[in-house]
């Protein structure tokens, strides 16, 4: 899409979404978190430049936005990889042996917890309960939720991961 606004990170599409929230919510400050979600969706992390631009666009001090970014676990500045794998480590998934799943995922992706794979495709994070304890050990790849108990072999896992490789081939 051709860009008409002056920002580098806030694309026209993002501005459109931010405007939607500005229209929707009664107070401007309420737009910060929804906008960060949209930025996260596009970049898979929160680039510092993006919140500088957001601060300018919303006319809200940068420190005020930074305050929000640093509080919420889903928002982070660290450069995330193309695909963000979140594996649940809370009690039901712990009982469901999430560690075995983690080992398999680490092996196949080449990434480790809190780290990226060398090819930039994967980032792995351990998270608290994601409300999916009946399908423990549960994990998310980006927005997609998976039932770890259904993964009986390396092949099963490979099949899931491959989907994300082909969707993202050649990019970072």
């Amino acid at each position: 899409m051709e860009k008409t606004n002056k920002f580098k990170y806030l694309t026209d599409e993002l501005i459109q979404k931010i405007n939607y929230y500005l229209n929707k919510f009664p107070k401007k400050e309420q737009v910060i978190i929804p906008s960060l979600h949209e930025i996260l969706y596009v970049y898979r992390d929160i680039p510092f430049e993006a919140i500088e631009e957001l601060s300018e666009y919303l006319d809200i001090p940068l420190a005020r936005i930074e305050d929000v970014v640093t509080f919420y676990d889903m928002f982070r500045h660290r450069k995330n990889a193309k695909n963000h794998i979140r594996i649940c480590r809370n009690l039901p998934c712990h009982l469901g042996k999430y560690r075995n799943l983690l080992k398999q995922i680490e092996k196949l992706t080449g990434a480790e917890v809190d780290g990226h794979s060398a090819d930039g495709l994967w980032y792995i994070e351990l998270v608290e309960c994601i409300g999916s304890c009946a399908i423990a050990p549960a994990f998310l790849i980006n927005d997609d939720l998976y039932d770890g108990s259904k993964i009986k072999s390396e092949e099963d896992l490979k099949k899931i991961l491959e989907k994300y490789i082909s969707e993202n081939s050649g990019e970072l």
Binding site: N90, L91, P92, E128, C129, G131, S132, C133, A134
Partner: peptide, 11 residues
């Protein structure tokens, strides 16, 4: 917000 460990009823 449903974040209590082991809770997945509201969803």
């Amino acid at each position: 917000d449903e974040s209590e460990p082991g809770t997945f009823k509201d969803r």
